[in-house]
């Protein structure tokens, strides 16, 4: 047990970006999956062929996160912003302003029925 009082961590953002050591082997893992290899077999292949020791759960969870993340645009995969366009202030388009005015209800615009005498 740690008896020292817990200190509130202050989120500062930034810091070095985390990268999984499996990232260089993404293509290898995909290829193995397309060959219908199990996660256990892939983990063994990674250890024997690539020298990367990892459990089958580790490979599975990494690859699942990778697939989910690749569905959405991510800042890490975006091309760097052009500084000129990044600093430009865009002018927002103007659309017609809603000006309230009085109008009748559509149901109140009926005509006489000539068939009724």
């Amino acid at each position: 047990m740690n008896d020292e009082p817990t200190t509130q961590l202050v989120r500062t953002g930034g810091g070095r970006a985390y990268h999984s050591r499996l990232e260089p082997f993404v293509d290898f893992i995909r290829e193995q999956r397309q060959r219908r290899q199990t996660w256990k077999e892939i983990a063994e292949s990674l250890r024997s062929e690539k020298g990367c020791s990892v459990t089958l759960q580790g490979v599975h969870q990494f690859y699942r996160r990778f697939v989910l993340r690749s569905r959405k645009p991510h800042w890490e995969t975006q091309p760097p912003l052009n500084p000129e366009t990044a600093d430009r202030k865009s002018v927002l388009a103007s659309t017609p302003q809603e000006r309230p005015f009085r109008r009748p209800a559509a149901d109140d615009l009926s005509l006489n029925n000539p068939l009724i005498v």
């Binding site: 009085r102 009748p104 109140d108 615009l109 009926s110 005509l111 006489n112 000539p114």
Partner: peptide
Amino acid sequence: GDLFKGSPLERQFIEF
């Protein structure tokens, strides 16, 4: 003007 005279439409025009 049989369709119009005395019709709800005429009343709306008067109101406006």
